[in-house]
């Protein structure tokens, strides 16, 4: 094997390993279970190694690995729960549901709690954008959806969070409405 190929192979492995934290975080966002998240990451690397002749150029390696991880997760879910809806995007929580979950914690903790209360598709786009800093196009590739969907999900997620974080006293609950 030539020195160039050896070097390129070494670089591929180092670059892939440097994505570990991000992959683990995304796996946790998807699965919300540490053991499952670790399995997802392991399967992702196994598949990436097997398909590395098809690997994206170095600068796109990270999003390529995220795509693999999301595919692994989707296939796993399909295998385990074939009748489950793929996304819960249409079943939005009522504002009161999210707000009721928020107690008198700090603003940061309340925001975290509000994020946790969002349906999975919204949590996924938030994590990919604001933690992993992927572009809309990269997120669309990972989630296998149009970039416009990414944009609208982010917008809806922000609206829901803003609503959830608005001081509760300013928004009367239905039974408190004075007729």
């Amino acid at each position: 094997m030539g020195a160039d190929v050896e070097r390129s192979e070494r670089e591929f492995r180092q670059a892939a390993l440097s994505c570990l934290d991000g992959l683990y975080r995304f796996a946790l966002t998807l699965a919300r279970d540490r053991v499952v998240a670790e399995d997802l990451v392991q399967e992702t690397y196994a598949r990436a190694l097997a398909a590395r002749h098809k690997a994206a150029p170095d600068e796109k390696l990270r999003s390529w690995l995220f795509v693999i991880l999301h595919n692994v997760w989707r296939n796993e879910r399909r295998r385990q729960r074939p009748l489950a809806p793929p996304d819960e995007v249409d079943r939005l929580p009522a504002r009161e549901d999210v707000a009721a979950a928020l107690d008198r914690r700090t603003a940061g903790e309340r925001l975290q709690q509000a994020i946790d209360g969002l349906p999975a598709p919204f949590r996924q786009v938030l994590a990919l954008r604001y933690v992993e800093e992927l572009s809309y196009k990269e997120i669309a590739d990972v989630l296998d959806c149009p970039a416009g969907t990414v944009m609208s999900r982010l917008a809806r997620a922000r609206v829901m969070l803003r609503e959830a974080l608005r001081p509760l006293t300013l928004v009367p609950r239905p039974r408190e409405v004075v007729r």
Partner: peptide, 15 residues
């Protein structure tokens, strides 16, 4: 706020 609030756990050492 989102950038600050979203969790950023690192991969466990064993993994």
């Amino acid at each position: 706020e989102l950038e600050r609030a979203l969790p950023r756990p690192q991969a466990p050492a064993g993994l």
